[in-house]
């Protein structure tokens, strides 16, 4: 019993068909949602900023009453799970990363492959979580390349994905 999702998709965003979307979702310009991802705005709305990339098998859930605000230029890689409360800009959730409920992510954080945060914590900017024991460190954030790589990634996806997938429009 899935209500029809209420989507507000910016004109320059790309939301593929074959997604599992629920609730009220606002997608900013330049954001790309691959097929096979799940965005459930069951508790409150989810608002994507610009330039985010959400790959397949990603689960983004907002259970709380407040809206979940996702910043700009974040990358959610395959299989990651986002249950937190807030995300800043330029973060990366690597493959199968898990952000638990109530957690806030700052800017430029990297949650490594198969790593997870704790619940209800606030991660400072530029935190890296890596390894099988979820070790953490703060890194220098010297990822000057990252923005330009990210912009080119977005360009590529905007060109290539529509060739093989249908896209959704606002309802």
């Amino acid at each position: 019993m899935m209500s029809r999702p209420k989507l507000t998709i910016s004109t320059r965003a790309l939301v593929c068909q074959d997604n599992d979307l629920r609730g009220e979702i606002i997608v900013g310009a330049g954001t790309v949602l691959h097929p096979q991802c799940r965005v459930w705005a069951t508790g409150g709305p989810i608002m994507f900023g610009s330039g985010n990339i959400v790959e397949e098998h990603v689960v983004i859930i907002n259970r709380g009453p407040e809206p979940l605000i996702i910043g700009d230029h974040n990358v959610f890689e395959v299989g990651s799970v986002m249950e937190g409360m807030k995300i800043g800009n330029r973060n990366t959730l690597e493959v199968k990363a898990h952000v638990k409920t109530g957690t806030w992510l700052g800017d430029e954080c990297v949650i490594g492959t198969v790593c997870s945060t704790h619940e209800n914590e606030i991660l400072p900017d530029r935190t890296v979580i890596y390894g099988d024991k979820n070790d953490r460190r703060i890194y220098s954030g010297n990822k000057a390349n990252q923005m330009s790589v990210h912009m080119r990634h977005l360009e590529y996806l905007m060109q290539t994905l529509p060739k093989f997938n249908h896209s959704r429009t606002s309802t």
Binding site: V78, G79, N145, R152, H153, Y156
Partner: peptide, 16 residues
């Protein structure tokens, strides 16, 4: 299982 080609930027061009 998920089989996905890798991507990177090489000589200024982003590609899979």
């Amino acid at each position: 299982c998920v089989i996905r080609p890798p991507c990177k930027t090489y000589k200024g061009v982003f590609s899979y």
